[in-house]
Design a protein around this nucleic acid. Structure first.
Lengths: 206, 206
DNA sequence: CTGATTTTCAAACTTTCGTTTGAAATCCAA
DNA sequence: TTGGATTTCAAACGAAAGTTTGAAAATCAG
């Protein structure tokens, strides 16, 4: 295990993550990656066994970072009231709107996968997404204590989706015909609005 | 204008729409399209001036069909109560879950554009999406008559996004760890749940 | 039917893709 | 320092991409 080779690996991973997030797997060429990473053409095949292996590694990294981010903050919300916890959850969902570059990048990679899931991604999801969904289920359960398993699951997915339309389309929302500004204070008020609607919706439903 | 050439055009458009929806622009080769359409390799360049021109045409067609579908049904909801109208809106948003193949295909093409918008798509959106958003704005205005322009717009986008998480991820939701069945009756009850939460959320907010 | 126009076709062209190759350079334990 | 292993490098390979070409076929007005 030599150290200098590790910086090459890391340079490739870093460049690849950015390009895969920006242009997707098909839209990213190996030559574009090695150019951005300032490494040799053959380095990808040497270190990762090919474009596929590199992508697999990037995907794993993004997934690890995202779940880690979610789960660490989930503990903090245990002590809050259900309304505070939900507001906090939604605010964190809106984080990518505020130039959280790394987070946004990881989400973007997932967005590509949403359109056309890779086998690798499907496996990753089915094996390791349970804790992530568990956080959302626990959250809605505090509003719907009597609901059955299926309703809880639907509510959890619904909750996760509340912000995604804003996060996913933030570029388009800025221009016509919407013209929604999304600076820091705008995102704050957006979070308040969504929290308000969601809390009232779930409260009544109980 | 000769008629036989029109069937070639149409065969190409049909095959291309399916493949672009399934695999995206980059993932679809000209050779795959002509094979599916049973036409000659050069036909795409002859009739559409290239892969780009063909994609442009497919995108326009999908957009036209979607807005048309939305606007014709919007008139029918004018006579309903605001709750009925909203329930109807949400039910229609869930349509693609129930094997509305053509609709699903058009939506899928848009989903690819959401990840990485084409210049063509951006132009299309900024010039022709206003009536579409208008329907949603009119709908939420009946719940929030006193709200300002920006709040209405946010609420409209929020409303449109209510179902997209289910529609967009329907493949993954079937498998672990979620295991959500989405047959006809399940989609019905899903629509009722979402309508319930949204109506209560907006009603309280007023 | 005739002749000009439109449309189809097989084949080849150019470029770009991911990958392979084998030698040169570098590294590190002994 | 030395010698074997690891890592880098420039170059080339074969496959697949989008496009072009020019002749053959089909079409339609007159």
């Amino acid at each position: 295990m030599t150290r200098p080779s590790e910086v090459t690996r890391q340079r490739i991973l870093n460049a690849a993550e950015r390009l895969f997030a920006e242009r997707g797997y098909d839209g990213t060429s190996v030559r574009a990656i090695v150019a951005k990473a300032h490494v040799n053409q053959a380095a990808i095949n040497y270190h990762f066994g090919g474009k596929d292996g590199l992508y697999r590694e990037v995907l794993h990294g993004a997934f690890r970072a995202l779940t880690e981010n979610q789960l660490t903050h989930a503990q903090a919300t245990q002590a809050m009231s259900r309304e505070e916890a939900l507001g906090e959850f939604i605010r964190r969902q809106l984080w990518p709107l505020m130039s959280r570059d790394e987070l946004s990048r990881h989400l973007r990679i997932f967005n590509w996968e949403t359109v056309r899931p890779t086998a690798v991604f499907r496996k990753l999801l089915s094996e390791e997404a349970a804790p992530f969904m568990g956080v959302a289920v626990d959250l809605v359960r505090r509003f719907l204590p009597e609901a059955d398993q299926r309703t809880l699951m639907v509510a959890a997915i619904w909750l996760v989706g509340q912000c995604s339309v804003f996060v996913r389309n933030r570029e388009q929302l800025g221009g016509p015909p919407v013209g929604l500004s999304l600076d820091e204070s705008a995102v704050e008020s957006l979070g308040r609005l969504i929290s308000h609607w969601v809390i009232d919706g779930l409260r009544q439903a109980a």
